[in-house]
Nucleic acid binder design. Structure first.
Lengths: 329, 329
DNA sequence: ATAATTGTTGTAATCGGTTACTTCGCTGGA
DNA sequence: TCCAGCGAAGTAACCGATTACAACAATTAT
């Protein structure tokens, strides 16, 4: 393998000059610069990253710990993070914590070992509860999930407001007995639950909320029980894409048609929500933008470690489709 | 930060002994081992990876370059790879090449810079055509995409056979005018096309194949044209999940009901294929298994660099649903 | 003319581990 | 008793960059 000293010899300069040229530092004459670049070309020199990282104590790598890479929401987030990171010549280490707090701890440790420049994290509830940015030797930006009182940079949806608007939309369309199925294991589920409760309570309507693990299966089972109970709810609302999928499957099984017999709505504008007739009303999240904002916030934080903590809140967009059409009297 | 020499001092031994204990090497007495482990505990010592990598010339990292992380197929692959890799205390660098040959080259270069132990790659057609494992200083395992004559370790579906079986299934169900919409930009699309052609040709049926870029949009447009032509095809088949989604959307738009007016089938058992009434017949890929086999093959290859090149072919499973029900006479 | 300043370049220490090689103490056979 | 052989532990070279500091030449100020 060709090393920096080979390049120096070939160019007839010192290793320091080569290093300076490679790093784009000032203090090198144009003529030296050219000779070095030629030598680099000629020898196809590539600096050894391990050596560079050891000496410079920087890795130019950021860690991205997502809750579940299979969830299209996080897939899109990771795409955004990668895109922006690579534009800034930073590398990304993607880790899938699988909604498992232990794995999360494991990966955060791993990030420490890797000496990353920073981390983007969508924490589970236990990790979020114990989260203090000062516990980590690198800056952390939370994405998607964040408590009201977490003192950390974060990029999130306006979960409470979005759920409030979605619920209000159903109420305005004439629905009253609205059941809310939400994931209890994540901060988003709880916040969306809060928005639902507020919307119902301010109108004096009865709360009918059911917390479940955020999986298709759990949601399907829960919905199955709800729709076999009497009186039948007027509408079902799911707190995220996976749960909404479970609800939809449950309605399919029981042959209930929506919106005639029961309305349906939820979070996440996934491709299939448009396909299932007559389309499902959802809150669309600006997913790519969320990821982009997170990595940009992190890069800022890395550049200015002492800047004040900031939180970016993005608005969910209500997309009305047939599943919440005005209720026939 | 605590270093190996601090641990050595604390334990009253040399740095070499500490290093040996950390690496689990033999030639350390039990009493020394215990003292070192205690000191490691007491000081919460974590070896510096950059230093270790520089000296040992190993990174214990594998690169995973997927074509499009948004595609659920690759999402699942990456999950499998991560799971197995972490079990073997290896790290994974995930890169999203976005079906762009240039990005692919870029990432392969990056892998070289990172000095990874090996790479798992799902190549685009141009990269596959030029692929020689000897061009890279690390072992490469191809996944999902591979030519008949590529001399490299690979894990793939039996694409030709699966397409043949899927097409035959439709023919047996009474369909004759079967149109095949496939992605031309990938090896899988072409191989599945080949299976379709064989199935049709051996029965003397007319080939009606249309190549498109593998996107939902392109497939929808292509299908739109097909179903507005006369005579109307008896059936549409899509060569992967994205294309199948496009076909389904096109049928929705034109209000054609399946299977009464036109049958539908394709590849990839995505959640929505079960939901869209009356369910879409698909070839299900053992996605997680494909990824798992790929990383296991790579680990083997890393351990035994000279073992003979091997190819793992997995069988796709035909899942019959309503969209290909027996044709009414 | 001399000193101070500026701009380039080179030398060598350094980052924190791994590992080849040396040393030491002990046991067993000649 | 002496030496070969072996296991355990230590010393120091080494991995390949970055960068502090020194050295020097060319220019400008005094």
């Amino acid at each position: 393998m060709t090393q920096i000293k080979d390049v120096a010899k070939q160019a007839g300069v010192s290793v320091a000059s080569v290093s300076r040229v490679m790093a784009g530092h000032a203090g090198v004459s144009e003529v030296t610069r050219q000779r070095v670049l030629e030598a680099v070309q000629a020898l196809d020199y590539r600096p050894d990253l391990a050596a560079r990282r050891l000496r410079s104590r920087r890795t130019d790598t950021i860690g991205l710990i997502v809750s579940d890479i299979r969830n299209p929401f996080f897939t899109e987030i990771s795409r955004a993070v990668e895109d922006v990171a690579y534009q800034h010549r930073m590398r990304v280490m993607l880790c899938n914590a699988d909604e498992d707090p232990e794995k999360e701890v494991l990966y955060l440790d791993l990030m420490r070992d890797e000496n990353v420049s920073g981390v983007i994290l969508s924490p589970t509830l236990p990790t979020l509860a114990r989260f203090h940015s000062s516990d980590y030797p690198f800056p952390v930006v939370l994405v998607d999930r964040c408590d009201r009182d977490t003192a950390a940079d974060a990029v999130v949806l306006d979960n409470v407001d979005s759920a409030y608007r979605l619920t209000s939309h159903l109420i305005e369309r004439g629905y009253r007995g609205i059941a809310f199925i939400y994931g209890t294991a994540s901060a988003t589920g709880r916040q969306r639950h809060e928005g639902y409760v507020t919307a119902m309570a301010t109108r004096g309507l009865e709360i009918q909320a059911k917390g479940v693990p955020a999986t298709v299966e759990a949601a399907r089972v829960a919905a199955g029980e709800l729709v076999r109970a009497r009186p039948l709810p007027d509408a079902l609302v799911g707190s995220n894409g996976l749960i909404l999928l479970g609800l939809t499957e449950a309605l399919r099984e029981t042959k209930l048609r929506f919106p005639e017999q029961i309305a349906l709505a939820g979070f996440d504008d996934l491709p299939w929500t448009r396909l299932v007739e007559p389309g499902i009303t959802v809150i669309a999240q600006p997913t790519y933008d969320l990821g982009q904002a997170a990595i940009e916030l992190l890069l800022q934080r890395i550049a200015h470690p002492t800047q004040s903590v900031r939180r970016v809140v993005m608005r969910g967009e209500l997309i009305e489709r047939g599943s919440s059409a005005k209720r026939s009297p």
